[in-house]
Design a protein around this nucleic acid. Structure first.
Lengths: 102, 102
DNA sequence: CGGTGGTGTCAGCCACCACTGATGTGACAG
DNA sequence: CTGTCACATCAGTGGTGGCTGACACCACCG
């Protein structure tokens, strides 16, 4: 059936560390070194999560010398926000829609 | 640190079956029998997921004879939508905020 | 050209979670 | 009262995913 919200994107963002990364990147563009400092996670672990975020299209990479900058893609987040807003509005309108007991 | 989005709520909604339940409940108030028909899941499985959704405050229960109606709480979804919208707007405004390489 | 530091990839381990079957409880029909 | 149905809870199990250590690669600096 059709779920109005992208499940895969939700699964990607449902991890605490990934959500923390996204929150940090929403404030400013950072490179991996900064993210390691901010989160306290191991570089390997962070690289794995960033890979997941990259493959999900949530972040973009921009090499800068031997550093790599990570930037959040606002439209992806905005789209998700819109899907949830639609869901909430739909729920408000259908509050009295009650299917009869069998 | 402070993540602007509720991680626990995300984890609850990140499951495909739970998201399907939420999508169905956004359209109309249903009882478990209907949900079993619509999703094709086992009763036990569905009951477990509904319990998770109930404990997370996403759905409300309303007993009706020997049936139980489940209703979505729009404000919870709307709040989540707002958090993501804020995140997206923050990302848009901070697009050029780039911390210097170390 | 070596050495160093930043980054990505891979294999393994472990914990958590979704699914299931059995069982209990309460409500209704006969 | 007894059977049936709706719903919940519990213990067990299997699979998925996150974390880590070892290694490879590339850009810079001396």
């Amino acid at each position: 059936m059709m779920t109005s919200v992208d499940t895969d994107l939700m699964r990607v963002l449902a991890d605490p560390l990934r959500l923390q990364i996204v929150t940090l990147l929403a404030r400013e563009t950072l490179c991996s070194t900064h993210l390691i400092e901010e989160t306290g996670a191991k570089q390997t672990n962070l690289s794995n999560h960033l890979r997941v975020l990259r493959e999900a299209g949530v972040v973009e990479t921009e090499p800068c010398g031997r550093y790599t900058y990570y930037k959040l893609r606002p439209d992806v987040i905005a789209q998700l926000a819109g899907q949830f807003a639609d869901l909430a509005e739909s729920a408000r309108n259908a509050a009295e829609n009650k299917r009869a007991c069998p």
